[in-house]
């Protein structure tokens, strides 16, 4: 190794420590035997999986986890479908109102969610959507849409115009041209947008605690904050740590398998701007 390589390796190590230590701390906490919680050690003295067993046995976590998965997946799918349509139109077609659409998306992306919580709370209460899956899916779709529209539009724009013209000349209808030529070429963009949209929905806390009241629709992050422990007198630290690790797993998997996609998706908007 050259000197430069060693220097860079040290810097890289600093970055790795920065990124992983807080996560490893939670992992360690979740594997600690409850009697050793208060030892303040970074590495567990006594290892146990009891904390994980507890959260699934007691059941206060299973249902919210299912809620989280279901709501995030459904919201992501809806956002992707709507986003693909809108992004295609924005990237490819010439129609009045296009800039309004883009402006509105940007506005929503920057919008303070808490400003929506009050009115949504009231509206959903009236419509009977409060504390339901749909009650969370709607706002999640809305806040995932700007992201998906921008990412997908930038992918669509990179597909050469002439391919679509060629498809038309080859006898394809506009819809056939879209389905057979554009969609396959935009697939990487769709995957990217879907991952980022999912992460965003998975991450939400404010809507989840404001628009739910029981386990019927409460998602995992919100449920964690209501953990009381297996019994009234038990400290919930272990359960919280274990649950926190569980809901981090999908994120770690996405990051490991789709690193390039996520980076390109996050940076595409900034460069094109």
């Amino acid at each position: 190794m050259t000197g430069a390589q060693i220097r860079w390796s040290i810097l890289n190590l600093v970055v790795v420590v920065y990124a992983l230590v807080p996560v490893l701390w939670l992992l360690s906490l979740s594997l600690k035997d409850p009697s050793t919680f208060t030892d303040g050690k970074f590495i567990p003295r006594e290892w146990t999986f009891d904390n994980y067993k507890n959260i699934f046995d007691v059941g206060e976590f299973t249902r919210p986890l299912i809620n989280s998965i279901g709501i995030a997946i459904i919201a992501t799918l809806i956002a992707i479908v709507l986003g693909v349509f809108a992004a295609y139109a924005i990237a490819r077609l010439d129609f009045p109102g296009k800039n309004v659409m883009l402006g509105a998306s940007l506005l929503i992306a920057m919008f303070p969610q808490v400003s929506l919580v009050t009115p949504l709370f009231e509206i959903e209460r009236r419509l009977g959507l409060f504390n339901t899956w749909a009650g969370l899916i709607f706002p999640y779709v809305t806040f995932a849409l700007p992201l998906t529209i921008y990412i997908l539009a930038s992918f669509f724009k990179e597909i050469p115009w002439e391919l679509e013209k060629a498809a038309k000349m080859d006898g394809a209808s506009p819809f056939q041209a879209f389905r057979k030529v554009i969609v396959p070429l935009a697939a990487p963009g769709v995957v990217t947008a879907a991952i980022l949209a999912f992460i965003q929905c998975w991450n939400d806390f404010l809507f989840a605690i404001s628009l739910t009241s029981t386990d019927r629709a409460r998602t995992a992050p919100a449920a964690i904050s209501f953990f009381t422990g297996a019994s009234q007198f038990e400290d919930p630290t272990g359960s919280i740590a274990a649950a926190a690790v569980v809901i981090t797993i999908p994120i770690v998997l996405f990051v490991l398998f789709f690193q390039r996609r996520i980076v390109s998706g996050l940076t595409s908007g900034a460069v094109k701007g």
Binding site: V23, L26, W202, F205, P221, I224, S225, A244, I247
Partner: peptide, 8 residues
């Protein structure tokens, strides 16, 4: 998840 990190 922000809440997870916050608990950490």
């Amino acid at each position: 998840v922000t809440v997870v990190a916050a608990y950490g």
